[in-house]
């Protein structure tokens, strides 16, 4: 299939390209150029450029949106909210019936859910709260949902929490892992599995979807049952390679400082 990727040169983009490049024809777009090692088609494009996104989507079968912006208020709304509007206009104008959107868990599950409840599932009404990143992405998601109500467009939204390398559980937001606390966040997923989830979504037939707007949490099955991702396995057929057990079991913890007194 011909796949237009928006915001494809961020952190997730390379993993999505890796998962799909031998199976699909990709047009990668971003405001930043890809590394020289990228051999595919590339177009410089800002996701909030409605006309530019409409033109880039000509002749495409699917649009995948990986663009995000977190801290800056003006750009966050331009990318996270208006960007989705551009994408949906492009889908409508080019008769593209399938769109893959991505975002953080809290565009749906804000603190009012996460701090109170368990078995959180992706079919709940959104409660993002007022955090800039969460709310601006959630507004973008609502734009997608409204477009699916009155157009023949299917939107699959994949929600991530933490993304990690299976060989390095630290991340950009946390240099040292505190092994003597519970998992710092309810779920983490490896980069290759995150990329695979997009490929699964791209290849899932629309007939398997319950509605024209479906959301999925991208996490392996975890014993604490905070989030429920069973729908992801059944509908998308996504099977994560890694469960990152060392984040949520004692036996696999091997702190570098040998401080094992908690066990």
């Amino acid at each position: 299939m011909k796949v237009l990727i928006l915001g494809g040169n961020g952190m997730l983009g390379p993993w999505v390209v890796k998962a799909m490049k031998t199976r699909h024809e990709i047009l990668l777009t971003d405001i930043n150029s890809p590394p020289k090692s990228y051999k595919g088609e590339f177009m410089k494009l800002s996701v909030d450029d409605v006309e530019g996104v409409v033109n880039a989507a000509k002749g495409m079968d699917i649009i995948v949106n990986l663009s995000v912006l977190r801290p800056h208020r003006r750009i966050a709304f331009e990318v996270n909210t208006l960007g989705n509007y551009s994408m949906m206009i492009a889908a409508r104008e080019n008769n593209i019936s399938k769109v893959i959107n991505t975002g953080p868990h809290f565009q749906l599950v804000g603190p009012q859910y996460e701090e109170w409840d368990f078995n959180l599932n992706p079919d709940m009404p959104p409660q993002p709260g007022t955090r800039l990143y969460a709310l601006s992405k959630s507004l973008g998601q609502e734009v997608c949902r409204v477009f699916t109500e009155d157009n023949n467009i299917h939107v699959i939204t994949l929600l991530y929490y933490n993304m990690k390398h299976h060989w390095d559980l630290s991340g950009p937001e946390q240099e040292n892992i505190d092994y003597h606390l519970d998992m710092n966040v309810p779920y983490s997923t490896t980069w290759p599995d995150c990329g695979e989830a997009v490929r699964c979504a791209v290849e899932t037939p629309i007939e398997k979807l319950n509605s024209r707007c479906e959301t999925f949490f991208i996490l392996p099955e975890l014993p604490h049952k905070k989030f429920n991702s069973s729908k992801t396995f059944v509908v998308l057929g996504w099977k994560p390679m890694y469960k990152l057990e060392s984040l949520w079991t004692k036996s696999n913890r091997k702190p570098e400082n040998n401080n094992t007194e908690a066990f």
Binding site: T81, M88, R92, G110, Q112, Q127, P128, G129, T130, L135, S138, L139, E142, V143, V146, F147, E149, D150, N151
Partner: peptide, 25 residues
């Protein structure tokens, strides 16, 4: 029931949503 073909209606819906999240918090 906001609609995608009228951006003014879509904006009214988004505007309500922003207000609601400030109230929710």
């Amino acid at each position: 029931h906001p609609i995608s073909s009228d951006v003014n209606i879509l904006c009214a819906y988004l505007c309500e949503m922003v207000h609601k999240e400030f109230a929710r918090d």
